[in-house]
Design a protein around this nucleic acid. Structure first.
Lengths: 181, 181
DNA sequence: ATTTACATGTAAGACGTTACATGATTCT
DNA sequence: AGAATCATGTAACGTCTTACATGTAAAT
């Protein structure tokens, strides 16, 4: 039941409406950890409220309801986060493609690795810039732990793709665009 | 429909029965990329055969049926692996917990990061040893790309956890068990 | 006025997990 | 003889995605 804890976790950061949570999933969690559509979020918020783990703290225009986590909700969230689950759910279509690289012929593998190296470089630089900006604005260190992990993951992916490209072609480096050399 | 392509990918490496695939998911894919129970695998093999993407190549004891990927299966697998899907499914309960670290108090966060640093170190060393052993036995480079990526992910996780511990406690290093210093 | 963004909700169908169900072969 | 492993299959239930459905408020 990770959806429940993902929602609870987002509410622990700050009170939010179902609509807000949808955007938070999209921006913060979707690419790394979890995703949920609004059709899952709204019913889950109702259940959390029914179970006393969250509560409506504000009603706004267009039927907007802002929820906040309750004390019981924090207890449950802490229990789950610290629970050493040795069988965590992992589903990653992107990693799956990388793992199936060995089923391609060399030229296809090269193409995919080049795309991968470039894509992860872009992601890395964008995340790193965001972290630098937040650091300059004196954001609290813990608030940036997740972003830092994301940045490091992309850097690792970038380095791995270049390493693999070199292994595929022992003679040509990954950055050889110049005709000389 | 990633289950289909995960199965197809495993069959592309070598022919296998549903039972074999179950163990391959468990050992090779579950922790990084995808998982499937036998109750999903057997029906999917039937569908792959019905669609001409896989075929039974051997029948053994206890009703065992070994499947192999067909030429059409390879075409479909290649199409999917090279398809730049910009909305890949990601679900990672482990990463989700790490992202929710900031909702814990400092002492809880410290405990979790220590556990994380230790766990990822163990995983890294075990994977690295397996890669070294395979390299010594002259395994083809591509066959080790996935394992190398896994190892690098764990190393990144380990380094990140130690980095985060230092940030949490600017005075004490992560490995300070001695009373002196 | 019109478009865009905000805001919530339900239903059908696909996908995934857990439990139920059965039996053969191999190892000790 | 008994236990462990191999081997396949279905059913019930829970989760997730996609589509359907509706309406308000803000911006241009």
């Amino acid at each position: 039941m990770s959806l429940r804890h993902a929602v609870l976790g987002l509410l622990a950061e700050e009170p939010a409406s179902g609509y807000d949570l949808g955007r938070k999933f999209e921006r913060n969690l979707r690419r790394y950890a979890w995703h949920a559509q609004h059709s899952q979020i709204y019913p889950e918020l109702s259940r959390l409220a029914a179970d006393g783990l969250a509560t409506v703290v504000e009603e706004g225009p267009r039927g907007r309801r802002t929820y906040a986590i309750t004390a019981a909700g924090r207890v449950e969230l802490r229990r789950w986060v610290l629970d050493p689950d040795d069988d965590p759910v992992v589903r990653n279509e992107h990693t799956l493609r990388l793992f199936l690289l060995s089923t391609l012929d060399t030229e296809d593998a090269r193409q995919m690795l080049r795309r991968q190296a470039e894509g992860s470089r872009v992601e890395y630089e964008s995340l790193r810039a965001r972290i630098d900006e937040a650091t300059r604005q004196a954001a609290p260190p813990v608030a940036l732990f997740a972003a830092e992990l994301g940045a490091r993951y992309f850097l690792t992916l970038h380095e791995w793709a270049n390493w693999a490209l070199e292994r595929l072609d022992p003679d040509a480096g990954p950055d050889r665009n110049a005709s000389a050399g």
